[in-house]
Design a binder for these strands. Structure first.
Lengths: 218, 218
DNA sequence: CCTAATCCTGAACGGTGAGTCAACGCCCTC
DNA sequence: GAGGGCGTTGACTCACCGTTCAGGATTAGG
């Protein structure tokens, strides 16, 4: 099986120690994505990473705690990925485009196995009643909107974007549009396709920030 | 009690005991709002409308079906209310304002006991996995966006709004903003207050539709 | 080797909650 | 006032699942 040979080497190889916790968190995120939070059983998680149910509760004090940690873990992964991608692009326009691309459910093939947005919705539901989750959500949420606001600020410093509304305000506005559209795409009736979301997000962002989009198609 | 004439020899049909069914649906919606969908037990619903647990499953073939019906029932209530309110206002501008007001979580005192948006989030989560709910969601969702698009069309016919983007497209855009903001307000960190949502929704709608807002405050 | 700590297992426990059912009473009809 | 059916009850069943636990396996250190 995936038995990891733990070398007695003092310092971490690729995988030691806390490794199991992370495996479990990843497995949990996977199961939550597949089955939904409310249908996720400890045994599913155990099977997904090939261990016994007992072990899950050896590393986590309760199922509830594990689930909250798994949700934030998955979101952290997305955020790290997003940050890395943004750093590659010096242009604020390109950054905004990339942020939007990464936010369209199921658009990027690497992400297909794990729909970030399906987990967001679970986070919302849980945060409504679970103070622990609410606290985490507040952090994740602010981080998300700040990513947008920072792009706006950056674009203004380079002169790509005009001055205008408070950047944080724009973070809220654009964030809201992206959230709202992502839900529609996620639901996957034909009404709003991934391409629609791309187009509309760019369009509305341009309108709100106040720069001109070069005509893409006709 | 309103006694409904029951035809003998028919299966548990939609006609039988319609009042009770509705009572149960209302109670279920209440419990879901209070405790959350995943924490809702049949017994809670039974207690809320003062009957036995057995009776709940006398009227509904399963808990799952009841929950789906309850969610759509609650949304229907909101939609009916919305339609009624809109019909009172001849002006499209006033209609849009009213729609936004009704969409702000917890703003209207009459609605405090039942946060429409908390139920929407539950609908989203469930619709992701339950085809039954997905089908219902599609209907509710279209109806919601069409309400917005119709206001836009109306405003154009009266000359209040300029011509521009396709009205359905605007329904999607404005709908997305309102959805996204409503989530933020619902989560109730201080970042987006009900007043913020009102202001931003109006502001963004005006920008997207293309009419000028008279300065409200200072 | 011996020992202790850590990792891991699978069975057993206990609570819980959906769904069932036999019985009861009330109203309607005849 | 007899009979039948609908609405209603609440106790019971039964499966499920989180959590615990006693102990087996593996590793680290001496």
């Amino acid at each position: 099986m995936g038995r990891t040979k733990a070398k007695p080497g003092v310092k971490p190889g690729p995988k030691v120690g806390k490794d199991r916790r992370q495996e479990i968190l990843a497995a949990a995120a996977q199961v939550i994505t597949d089955r939904g939070l409310s249908e996720t059983r400890i045994q599913d998680i155990a099977e997904t990473c090939g261990v016994s149910t007992g072990l899950i509760l050896y590393y986590f004090e309760s199922k509830d705690r594990l689930l909250v940690e798994a949700l934030t873990y998955a979101n952290d992964q997305f955020y790290l990925r997003l940050s890395r991608e943004l750093r590659k692009n010096p242009s604020a326009r390109a950054q905004l485009d990339r942020l939007i691309e990464l936010s369209v459910p199921g658009l990027l093939p690497e992400f297909q196995f794990l729909d970030e947005w399906a987990l967001w919705v679970e986070i919302w539901v849980r945060a409504l009643r679970d103070p622990e989750m609410a606290k985490e959500h507040e952090v994740l949420n602010r981080r998300w909107r700040r990513s947008i606001a920072d792009i706006v600020r950056h674009g203004r410093s380079t002169g790509e974007f005009p001055e205008g509304l408070d950047a944080d305000e724009l973070g809220i506005q654009i964030g809201a549009v992206v959230d709202g559209l992502a839900i529609q795409v996620l639901m996957d009736h034909g009404d709003v396709t991934p391409d629609d979301m791309l187009r509309v997000s760019r369009d509305v962002s341009a309108k709100l920030i106040g720069f001109a989009l070069e005509p893409a198609g006709a």
